[in-house]
Design a protein around this nucleic acid. Sequence first.
DNA 1: ACCTGAACACCGTTCAAGT
DNA 2: ACCTGAACACCGTTCAAGT
Lengths: 210, 210
Amino acid sequence: MTTRRGRPPQGVLSRERILLAGLALVDEEGLAAVSMRKLAARLGVDPMSLYNHVDGKDALLDGIAEVLLAAIPAPPADADLRGTMSALAHGFRAAMLGHPRAAPLVLTRRLASMTALAPVEAVLAPLLAAGYPPDRAVHGLRAVLAFLIGTLMREVEAAPTLGGSGRRLADLSASGLPAVAAAAPYLAVCDHEAEFEFGLRIMLDALGEP
Amino acid sequence: MTTRRGRPPQGVLSRERILLAGLALVDEEGLAAVSMRKLAARLGVDPMSLYNHVDGKDALLDGIAEVLLAAIPAPPADADLRGTMSALAHGFRAAMLGHPRAAPLVLTRRLASMTALAPVEAVLAPLLAAGYPPDRAVHGLRAVLAFLIGTLMREVEAAPTLGGSGRRLADLSASGLPAVAAAAPYLAVCDHEAEFEFGLRIMLDALGEP
DNA sequence: ACCTGAACACCGTTCAAGT
DNA sequence: ACCTGAACACCGTTCAAGT
């Protein structure tokens, strides 16, 4: 996020400028609309110029995902274990909801870079400090992360809400499926905030004691 | 999965044949390699012929997702609530792992069709029968589903495993991140089966009593 | 009703050329 | 070192034509 030290940005282009413009493009037009050519046009540059700073479209998307990941704030230093875990989960959520159309890049891609390990360190460090053996720490982290990814995919409209897409209450009641019809009023709406807190509490409770 | 009754398949093509060929194409070459033209070639047909049976590429992918969803078996009729929920979760997992490269179609798309509601009915019915009020049934179902989606995305290589992609133990130890290094042996491997059972137990326990 | 093929408006990326 | 633009091998989909 800070400007690169050392070499001044002599050209018009830089990896950072490209990634930020890419994120803006995703925010405005959605993932499906991203193309190297459109991004180049937005930067006033020949499409092939991007390849001097980025390794291709896939690497561009990975880079945008890393920009998003980097926006997760560090948890307050004085928090206890549960407070730390909760702060990180909420920070992750806020980072994704800040760029809902780009969030699937983080949620559905396997990032290979070092910067993707920073959040792992942020979660693992307090668990180990609290006395969790490393195997249990990793185990618990994976369960929490699976829940977070599934929940955020739903919030971000990339996964089923139940009651599929923008299904109407009337459609559900008239579906001919008795249980669906009976629960229709609840299937038709989804309080994301409440679902998130409900599930997060379950997962953090399940971590138990070291 | 059964052959369409009523009108015989007079042409070479039918929606069903197209969807099955599409699924086979995804299985063999992956989602990114799917194109209307390649699928048509595989069926020995002009690309535009597909449009007589399928509404475009997006509808094709939705259709393939529905084929996958339809493969979830009904739970045994004599099981208790927990057994029913567990059977459905395992059936869902098996259906996804049977076609890992196609699974993201189910896990990351919002299906609008009626057939996507069948699994919802299958889960909701036993919960309501067991006496759960509909709001709590939907609530619990959503939490379980978020966990399932997140876990399966990881199993299917579409979401972070932690220790990013095919990260080597040595890389993790040398990452310079102390907690990551300490937990490296556990980050480097992932027993999907165990993670799934661990998380599923947590979620089913959290459902509590009606 | 279904199938065809030409055509349009796009893609990502390679390569040779410029500065 | 960085930027350019022509070219290649693809896309999804519209449309007019065939049967």
